[in-house]
Amino acid sequence: MNVSPSSAAQAAREAVAARLTDLRKTAGLKAYEVAALCGWHKSKVSRLENAVTLPEDADIRAYLKACGAPEHVAELIAQTRNADQLYVDWKRLHGTGIRRIHESTVPLYQRTHLFRVYCSNVVPGLLQTHGYAQALLSTISDFQGTPNDASEAATARLDRSRVIYEGDHRFVLLVEETVLRYRFGDAAVMAGQLGSLLEVMSLPSVAFGVIPSTVARSMWPLETFMIFDDDRVQVETLSAEISITSEAEITVYAKAFAALQQLAIFGHDARALITDAINALG
């Protein structure tokens, strides 16, 4: 597994490694002795104890058996799985297609009251039309080399997005102006997507803002991220999805979102930029 660029994810991995090391030392064993008892090369214990790799369930059972501490197996497996979920590369998430991931996150969307979403590169998934989503997801699948189920995944994405029209939810969504110009699908697909933005932003639960490309920046463009209430942040990088649950890091992203929101324009002014983008499609 790759080392996460997120400090929270890396800290969770290091906590697992530290716990393993502590249990070995408590047992009075050297690293090479544990490796021998497990039938491993000694370098494997080093990788586990230095957080280079996360242990598999079988590794934890073998390691703790060697240390005479099998009563800690359930604890370490749970801790490891939590660390593993904080940073997951896209190829792993999309290994069987993208549709399944959308379906699995429906409960998170349904229980979230306040969504704060910032996108610097694409229209937020919550606001995507089927045509736009299908074109985008197909491009992603092809780049990642994962099964291309773009049509089914786009349908699942729209099903997940019904929270905009149902229940007691509020949405503040920000995009950079360039998002309105980046084309996914043909001109008709883009026109439909931009037209849909004009419709959705009229909903009382939705605040849709555009950060003009000409604005004097007091906050630089960031990677796409979503804040779910004050409980979780999901950050999308090129290679992975990072889930942040650390209160301190959530506060940092909330601060960044507030700064970006100050740069955005809403209402009539935002509509004008969207209309210009539609007209530019010819």
Results as ranks from 00 to 15, higher is better:
8 A>S: 13
10 Q>Y: 03
17 A>F: 09
24 R>S: 10
29 L>N: 09
41 H>G: 15
45 V>H: 09
57 D>I: 13
60 I>A: 10
62 A>L: 14
71 E>V: 03
87 Y>M: 02
92 R>H: 13
95 G>Q: 14
95 G>R: 15
96 T>N: 13
100 R>S: 07
106 V>K: 08
112 T>K: 00
114 L>K: 13
114 L>F: 10
115 F>C: 01
115 F>M: 04
115 F>A: 02
122 V>S: 00
125 G>S: 04
130 H>F: 11
130 H>T: 08
131 G>D: 10
135 A>F: 09
155 T>S: 01
156 A>P: 04
160 R>I: 04
164 I>A: 05
170 R>D: 12
174 L>P: 07
175 V>E: 02
182 Y>P: 02
186 D>Q: 01
192 G>L: 05
192 G>P: 06
194 L>Y: 03
198 L>F: 00
201 M>C: 05
205 S>K: 12
207 A>I: 05
209 G>P: 02
210 V>P: 12
212 P>E: 07
214 T>R: 12
225 F>G: 03
229 D>R: 07
231 D>P: 00
237 T>V: 10
242 I>L: 14
242 I>G: 11
247 E>V: 13
248 A>E: 15
248 A>R: 12
254 A>V: 02
255 K>H: 01
256 A>Y: 13
259 A>M: 13
260 L>V: 04
270 A>S: 11
273 L>C: 08
274 I>G: 14
274 I>C: 10
277 A>I: 06
278 I>S: 02
